[in-house]
């Protein structure tokens, strides 16, 4: 028996975890899906989107940043948290310009997949239709700012995995925007195979000339919801 092993409960189910795990990592290993958006494997968690919010001993915490501790009592799949997550996803939809019907990422988009999983048919907040820019200056990669949810995955991946510093943020609050290290994307050292480009959960960062390659019906989330790769079995969920 591993001395580092500790036990905690998620939604009443006892699970084993390793000291040093985050709640999200421990849940993944136990086959419990905690919805998440700004989290990505191989990157340090940012705790930015709050979609992975769980209640730990009654207090809301981001599961992607909170380390496990012995005896933790965690609530994950409760009506209250489902509603909170639905609202967060709703807000991400209305504060950007998400035109799924012609987006290259549709069917493979994590934001859309979360909305599908939560059964969202229409947002409850009014659409903002903000002014956002498109940067198609680079020969192989483009940015469509209309679809950016400011998750920071490209920012972190560019630094930590590509050893570059292509992406960053400018502005604050409602004015916060994705920015690149140069006057435009063509002036940076970004390349199509960069992990940062693939890190984008939405259709903001796209490799050119590969759009719609996978036909409808064979895309990632056409038949099974996001998270079903973690859950042991989710028939009909």
């Amino acid at each position: 028996m591993n001395t580092d092993a500790i036990t905690l409960t998620i939604d009443g189910k006892k699970i084993e975890a390793r000291r040093g795990d985050t709640i999200l990592e421990a849940a993944d290993r136990a086959g419990v899906y905690v919805p998440r958006l700004c989290w990505m494997k191989d990157l340090l968690p940012a705790g930015g989107c709050r979609v992975c919010t769980v209640r730990v001993n009654g207090r809301p915490q981001a599961a992607c940043t909170q380390p496990v501790a012995p005896g933790m009592v965690i609530e994950n799949d409760t009506e209250e948290l489902r509603e909170l997550r639905r609202d967060l996803i709703d807000m991400l939809f209305v504060e950007g310009n998400h035109f799924c019907m012609f987006c290259e990422k549709s069917g493979n988009c994590e934001l859309q997949a979360l909305a599908y999983r939560f059964g969202i048919t229409a947002p409850k907040y009014p659409y903002l239709f903000p002014q956002r820019g498109v940067d198609a200056s680079h020969p192989d990669v483009m940015i469509d700012g209309n679809r950016c949810v400011l998750c920071g995955r490209c920012v972190r991946a560019s630094r930590a995995l590509d050893g570059k510093h292509v992406f960053g943020f400018t502005g604050r609050g409602p004015g916060k925007r994705l920015a690149v290290n140069g006057p435009n994307l063509a002036a940076t050292d970004v390349a199509a195979p960069d992990r940062a480009v693939a890190a984008c959960p939405t259709g903001t960062l796209l490799v050119k000339r590969v759009g719609y390659k996978v036909p409808v019906g064979r895309r990632l989330y056409d038949h099974s919801p996001i998270g079903s790769e973690i859950e042991p079995q989710t028939p009909g969920k």
Binding site: F93, H98, F99, M101, T121, A122, Y127, F129, R132
Partner: peptide, 18 residues
């Protein structure tokens, strides 16, 4: 019932909203 993306979020015509 709102049927389709245009009824639900404005759809393609809403591209003019910007």
């Amino acid at each position: 019932i709102s049927v389709g993306d245009c009824a639900i979020n404005g759809g393609i015509p809403a591209l003019r909203n910007m």
